[in-house]
């Protein structure tokens, strides 16, 4: 019961979704619309589950006075402030409008933290690329050259450096050529590979062969 019903649900829902592509009429088309909305609602609850779990872990840390419990208090306070602003003090559905407390916190706290967190990755990427990009073999050299040509070709520095060269040899055009042909060829191989992988995995789910998502007893 704990494993059989979920597997049955996956099989039935999967089949109905596939059938709807071939029979786009009632009741299948309606089910697909409802199903898509239900999946979004479930995804919403899944995010809530993650948030509740974060709060549970943080509260446990505070209660047990574990190492770094003060930061867990900051997490809880941050959550309560943002949630309070978004749910009660920002005009309901228009909570994201400029001028609301939610927007103020988003613009002055969330945005700088988010942008800086990703911006400092530039330094880690630079250090990682120094180690990975040393042209130790043909593959690494190709990766290095493609990245360098692309970065130079997409920035004003590339235009400046290659301004005196014939049009076809200017870095911008070399970068465009790399993107249009060898890069596209590799990208297509990856996309077709992904499609084949997804088709086989989906077939396994729909036929009930793939059961790992139900876990153990």
């Amino acid at each position: 019961m704990r494993r059989e019903i979920p597997i049955l649900i996956a099989i039935v829902v999967g089949f109905v979704y596939v059938i709807q592509f071939f029979v786009p009429h009632a009741p299948f088309d309606k089910f697909q619309n409802w199903g898509n909305d239900w999946i979004q609602i479930i995804a919403g609850f899944a995010i809530i589950l993650g948030v509740l779990n974060l709060l549970k872990v943080s509260l446990e840390k505070v209660y047990k006075k574990s190492k770094g419990w003060g930061y867990a208090v900051i997490i809880i306070i941050g959550f309560l402030i943002m949630t309070g602003a978004g749910l009660f003090f920002s005009g309901g559905k228009n909570y994201q409008n400029p001028g609301t407390p939610f927007y103020y916190i988003f613009f002055n706290i969330y945005f700088p933290l988010n942008a800086t967190m990703f911006a400092i990755l530039a330094f880690f990427v630079a250090s990682a690329s120094y180690r990975a990009f040393r042209a130790r073999n043909k593959e690494a050299t190709l990766l290095l050259l493609a990245a360098i040509f692309l970065m130079l070709g997409r920035t004003p520095l590339g235009d400046y450096l290659s301004a005196g060269l014939p049009t076809g040899w200017q870095l911008k055009n070399i970068s465009d050529w790399i993107m249009d042909f060898p890069q596209t060829a590799g990208q297509r191989a990856i996309m077709i590979g992904i499609a084949l992988g997804i088709i086989s995995t989906s077939l396994r789910v729909i036929t009930g062969l793939e059961r790992t998502f139900v876990g153990g007893e």
Binding site: Y71, T83, I109, L113
Partner: peptide, 29 residues
């Protein structure tokens, strides 16, 4: 840094909670 990181986690959780509440629970349900 740890203070900023903790604040980021808390504010992000709140941001997603509100977004899900208004766009999924209210709008869809």
């Amino acid at each position: 840094y740890k203070f900023c990181e903790a604040l980021f986690v808390g504010i992000s959780a709140g941001y997603w909670f509100c977004t899900v509440f208004w766009s999924q629970f209210v709008a869809k349900l």
